[in-house]
Design a binder for these strands. Structure first.
Length: 561
RNA sequence: CGGAGCGUAGCGCAGUUGGUAGCGCGCUUGGUUUGGGACCAAGAGGUCGAGAGUUCGAAUCUCUCCGCUCCGACCA
């Protein structure tokens, strides 16, 4: 197909939009692909939608390849379904009423709906199944940002699997993991598959797909050796070993007047900050105060603590702290504390300085087991340069975008929604489910983040808005436009999607717009070369130029592929 | 929801002690141009985010509200 640029709705901008920070935000807006309607609400303009739909098609093909069946479920969902799974209280749910006062939500995901439908099946003979759809999701995000990076309404491909047993669920899960790898390969997107938190989805196992990016919401932790990749929230790093002072037979009180921070404490005592401990009291949702304890030079990873506690929590208030410890924050420690202590694994070995639970006093030589007992877990946040848990190499951090996430849900949804089947023995069993999401808009943004230069976007062929961009310099002049149309038709006849810049604009503006839009192959038709019957072809990715006879352009393109 | 900032033409911005709104880009018309965002000339385009107040007079001062951005909290 040939699209004439003079007809295309493609409002490119010469300047960056004022509030755009992320490269993808900046360039997608400038290239005339997306426009903002309101906070977190974006329209895709024609060229941008073509990219989106090409990604959608790749996802569709890979889903179909693993036996997925495409369907469609409504965005508007009666709230009763969400009440059954106790997800009606999620703050991100958009809620609304119809004229009769019936209550609805805008689906933020479709586990409830798909499981509701699945209940119509009832036999082990119906299993397994893979159902999926592309549908708009609504999420009342407290803070949308960065163009397409985090939005309040977006299209997601969500797939759901139904299996009779763990082995089946595992097989379904692995199929999706492989399909996702293929999707990202085909989109030429660099993506790391990492273990992740299951968050509000529940379930046992999940894999997050993170695309390294100049801008994003996740921090990807990787080892240079390629042995390890994880999201910062679950990553495990091995910090340096502390330099401990001489061992003491028992804890020894020491006055530390006015000292509140670890740096002050370590400086005052003349010791390694890593030989101190930091006490961070938190209050569980049920109101009990728990003491979380980490090494003095570490930071608490709240996601890990939440997982270890198995409940929500918040930092304790000063009043709660005084009531529980009888001391001010800054002098707290595990020795003598009557409540639960959860300590970081790094405190298992050695003697540390800890607060004495007496304002202005600390204890030296505190060791676990002898002086206090605690439950140990990995609750520290890794830092760059930590040792890799797999190989001992150095860990590095990268900003990343979450482009997909797959979950083993088990019976989390099937039980409350009554999705069961009868096995061969006529026994009713809950079906085991998995759920698998991928965001085409985020893939689009991540691709731009990974592939752009100072002039604009550099799309991979697979998801580019067009395969080839034919520029007719002196566009309105028939002696140039006619051969340009010929070239465009030739390419289209060879199966390419072609954008023909037939506008009357000056050459420089056409080149600049072409660079911005980022179509992989550019063919320039101008007076300069037409005398020789030639055109110039340039690859956006490499900037390489070739001058070739215009009738052989298609062969040239086939050759380079 | 906390902190910071910004709302003036399609986009990017200026507007001093309050006196009735401007610049660049873009757009329209005519002309000269045309291989990396041309030039000349003539034009069109604004409830100055909204409301209330102070004032003879408000883009400008006061109050309230709304919207948007960034940081944090949050995040299937």
């Amino acid at each position: 197909m040939v699209r004439r640029q003079s007809e295309l709705f493609l409002p490119t901008l010469r300047d960056d939009p004022a509030d755009a920070d992320a490269a993808s935000h900046r360039l997608l807006v400038r290239a005339g692909m997306i426009r903002q309607v309101s906070a977190g609400l974006w329209s895709f303009l024609p060229a941008g939608w073509r990219v989106h739909e090409r990604i959608v098609q790749i996802v569709r093909e890979e889903m179909d390849a693993i036996g997925g069946q495409e369907m469609s479920m409504p965005v508007l969902t009666p709230i009763e379904l969400w009440e059954k799974t106790a997800r009606d209280g999620i703050p991100e749910l958009f809620r609304l009423n119809d004229r009769a006062g019936r209550r609805y939500v805008l689906a933020m995901t479709h586990e409830e709906t798909v499981t509701f439908h699945f209940s119509e099946l009832g036999s082990y003979r119906d299993l397994p199944k893979i159902l999926y759809h592309f549908q708009t999701k609504g999420r009342d995000e407290p803070r949308s940002r960065g163009g397409l990076l985090r939005v309040r309404e977006f299209v997601m491909k969500d797939a759901y699997t139904f299996d009779r047993d763990e082995a089946g669920l595992d097989a379904s899960f692995q199929k999706h993991a492989r399909a996702y790898e293929k999707v990202f390969d085909r989109c030429e997107l660099e993506v790391f598959a990492v273990q992740a938190e299951s968050g509000m989805m529940g379930g046992s196992e999940s894999i997050d797909y993170l695309a390294p990016s100049g801008s994003g919401e996740n921090t990807l932790v990787t080892c240079a050796n390629g042995d390890y990749a994880a999201d910062l929230e679950v990553a495990r790093g091995i910090p340096r070993s502390p330099t401990f002072p001489e061992r003491l037979e028992g804890p020894e009180e020491i006055a530390t007047p006015g000292i509140g921070t670890i740096d002050e404490l370590a400086g005052f005592l003349g010791i390694d900050p890593a030989a101190t401990s930091k006490a961070m009291p938190v209050t569980r949702d049920d109101g009990t105060v728990v003491l979380s304890l980490i090494r003095g030079d570490d930071r608490l990873e709240e996601a890990k603590l939440a997982a270890a506690l198995g409940s929500g929590f918040r930092l304790s208030t000063e009043d709660e702290i005084r009531a529980a410890f009888g001391a001010d924050p800054g002098s707290l420690g595990p020795v003598g504390f009557r409540g639960e202590v959860i300590a970081d694994d790094m405190l298992r070995e050695g003697q540390f300085v800890a607060g004495a639970n007496r304002t202005g006093w600390h204890l030296r030589g505190v060791e676990q087991g002898r002086d206090f007992t605690a439950r140990f877990a990995d609750i520290r946040q890794p830092v760059e340069g930590d040792g890799c848990p797999a190989c001992g190499g150095r860990l590095g951090f990268q900003t990343a975008i979450e482009v997909g996430h797959i979950f083993k849900l088990g019976t989390t949804y099937s039980t409350p929604l009554g999705a069961t089947f009868l096995d061969e023995d006529g026994v009713e069993q809950p079906v085991l489910m998995g759920s698998y999401g991928i965001g085409p808009g985020r893939i689009m943004a991540a691709s731009v983040e990974q592939r752009h230069d100072e002039h604009g976007i550099v799309w991979p062929r697979s998801i580019a808005p067009y395969d080839a961009h034919v520029l007719a310099l002196h566009g309105s002049a028939p002696e140039v436009l006619d051969p340009a149309v010929e070239v465009a038709d030739l390419l289209a006849g060879g199966g390419l999607e072609v954008l023909l810049d037939d506008r009357a604009q000056r050459p420089g503006e056409k080149f600049a717009d072409a660079d911005l839009l980022g179509v992989p192959i550019r063919i320039t038709v101008g007076k300069k070369t037409l005398d020789d019957g030639a055109v110039d072809v340039r690859l956006r990715a490499t900037g390489s130029d070739d001058r070739i006879p215009r009738e052989t352009v298609l062969n040239w393109i086939e050759e380079i592929e």
